[in-house]
Structures are given as C-alpha cells and as structure tokens.
Amino acid sequence: MRRFLLTAIFAAICGIQGSLANSQQPSAKPEIVENTLGMKLVKIPAGEFQMGSPASEEGHTEIETQRKVRITKPFLLGQHEVTVGQFRKFVEATGYKTTLEKEMKPGFGFEPALDAIEILPKFNWQNTGFGTDEHPVVNLSWDDAMAFCKWLSEKEKVTYTLPTEAQWEYACRAETTTRYSCGETEGSLKGFANICDASFLSKYKNATWSIEWDDGHAFSAPVGSLKPNPWGLHDMHGNAWEWCSDWYAADYYKDSPADDPPGPKTGDVHIVRGGAFTNRNRFVRSADRNALKPGYRYNFTGFRVVRVIP
C-alpha cells in the first residue's frame, strides 16, 4: 500500500515511550572534510547491512521487508542537514527562486499571534516563524534540494547529490540494528533527537502525541545541537525530514538489487527519511519510509547532501 507522508502537525501520531536505554557513542573519531561553504562531510565506509526492519519491530510496516544491502563504495555525507545560511549562499550566488516562491504560494510556519502552525504568504525558506541561519533550511521541494546540489557540484567541480534511500539508512544505522541508532526504546532518543516533545506542546497545544520530556527545542534545532550517531552524523532522527534521491515504490525492497540500490526508475513521489520535530516514535525509526510529491514543501522538510568520492 502506498504510504504518503501526511503532516504530523494535523494528525496525532501514537507512540509508546520506552524506558531509557544506554546510549551508543561513536567508536572512533569520524573522518571529516570541509567544503567551500564550510559544510562538514563525514566519510562513510563501504559495507553491508540489513535494510528495513523485522516484523517484530514496533512501528514496522510491510514496505520495510528486511534484506541484505551492500554499499560498495565509500561516500561523503553531510554531518548536518543543510542550513538556512548555506542555502542563502546558493540563492545569493544564483538568484534562485524556490518552488514556493515561483508559484507564489504560501508556506508553512509558526504564527505566534494564533499560537499555531499556519499556511501564510509570508512563510518560505527564509521565514518559518522560528530559527536562524544555523537551523536546517526547510519549506523546500525535492527540486529545490537538487538545484542546490547541481550548483554546488558546478562550484566545486565534484559531484554532489541527495543520498539514495539505501545510503541514508546505512549511514543512519552506523552498524546498529536497533530501532534507532541510539537504542531500542523511544526513551533512548533523549539527547540524540529533536522530536515532538513538551516544548513543542507548549507552543502547539494540539500536539497531543508529544513525549513527556523536553529536548530543549520547540521547533527545529540548530544543526549539531544534539548528540551524533556512532558515525558522527547529527539529526538523523528528527529535526527535519530529509529528501532522498529515490522515487518511492511500496514493493521496491522485494526486487531491488543487493548492491547500491538506486531506487525505482520512475514514480510519483520521492522518499523522505528521518522524521522531524513534529514526530515521535514510529516515524523517526532508522527503517521508516515515507514519501512526498517532488513539489511538496513543509516547514519540517529539508535535506543533507552526498559528495561522491571519485
């Protein structure tokens, strides 16, 4: 069954908060390079892993059938989600107009006067009603994310793109097999993930699905504010949903290649991964799959980049 990502702002997401689990720390200092924008990229080694989730996992769906996947080449992945400030450099250099701006449509943002998330003309990637240049850039379509990658590729004479769904999950798991890279229970996310919590509930009273603890950020958090996964990547769970390069197909796992699966050749919607500050429990799992039409944009949907190693 095709499953589209519906904004968690308008629908309560049920979840069960588990007990606090032992946190997993990076086993070795990650190899990091920095590009001309000051973006830090982590070298992700080649390897293999079990992609998807077991049927016994809480939140598992039939589109997450487990199978072995091999990532045959190392790659560089953004240590953080692309920030507002980094995206602004792209816009200033090119005059680029986002999908939202070109279509002259309102965007999502927080309106304090109404104490609610609203769709208003004033909201776009530069204005969400919260955040700074250090926050993940949001209110972007898949096309906007790809346009940024194309510009950065031309600027640095190397190839930047969005991660494939397989690359994303492989990097997120970082050799872990638990529901989250930091543990098995929802409680293990504390300190590692910006998800729907008490501070979000204090701003958005309809968020009845929020967890009891407070992660310190009502909306998105400045990138790198929380602890990284074992490979040194921040915000792989929560903060902002992240566009992947793949088209989505519910049955893709059943027939996809074992080596470097690229995703379906065509489709109607693109994969998004990782969950956001509006989500809890099931949607921020390492294995969770969701999808949006390429032109969709929300105040909790952003991206991080891959740099291809020649």
Rank of each mutant, 00 (worst) to 15 (best):
G18K: 01
S141K: 14
I13N: 01
T99D: 07
T7N: 08
E101Q: 00
F148M: 06
P74D: 05
K97E: 05
V137A: 04
P310L: 00
Q17S: 13
L20I: 13
A55E: 06
A12N: 03
A166P: 15
T7C: 14
N279R: 11
W243K: 07
E101P: 01
A174N: 09
K265Q: 11
E57Y: 08
E31Y: 02
R67V: 06
F130L: 03
R3E: 12
G302W: 01
F87C: 14
L41E: 00
A193C: 03
I309C: 12
K68V: 08
G232W: 02
R289K: 13
I119H: 08
Q79F: 15
E34V: 14
K265T: 05
Q25G: 00
G95M: 01
D133E: 11
T99R: 05
D268S: 07
S181Q: 09
K155H: 13
F75T: 03
E92D: 11
G216F: 11
G187N: 11
R179Y: 10
G129N: 08
V158E: 13
Q167I: 04
C182S: 14
E169C: 02
E111P: 03
Y180N: 06
Y180C: 09
E156Y: 13
G224V: 08
N127T: 02
M1G: 10
Y252D: 13
Q86N: 01
K157D: 07
T65L: 15
D133W: 05
W151F: 15
S225H: 05
K227A: 09
E111W: 15
T94H: 04
V42A: 00
F87T: 04
M146A: 14
Y180I: 06
D259M: 14
N239T: 02
A174F: 13
A147L: 11
G15S: 10
F300Y: 04
V82R: 04
I195L: 07
F49T: 10
L6K: 10
D197C: 15
F192T: 01
G95R: 00
N281S: 13
D268Q: 09
V84P: 00
F75Q: 03
P30G: 05
S286C: 12
A166C: 14
S181C: 07
L201P: 06
Y160I: 12
D235C: 04
R285V: 01
F148V: 04
I13K: 00
N127W: 12
S256P: 09
P163V: 06
F108P: 03
H270G: 04
G52S: 05
G275K: 02
C149K: 13
S245C: 13
G107W: 03
P163G: 02
L37K: 07
A207H: 08
P30A: 14
C172R: 09
L162S: 01
S56Y: 11
K157Y: 11
F192R: 04
L120P: 08
K157C: 12
P257K: 14
F200T: 12
V272C: 03
S27Y: 15
A55Q: 09
S256R: 09
F283Q: 03
K150N: 11
V137F: 06
G95Y: 00
N206K: 03
M1K: 15
H80A: 04
Q24S: 01
R304D: 00
A276P: 00
N124M: 00
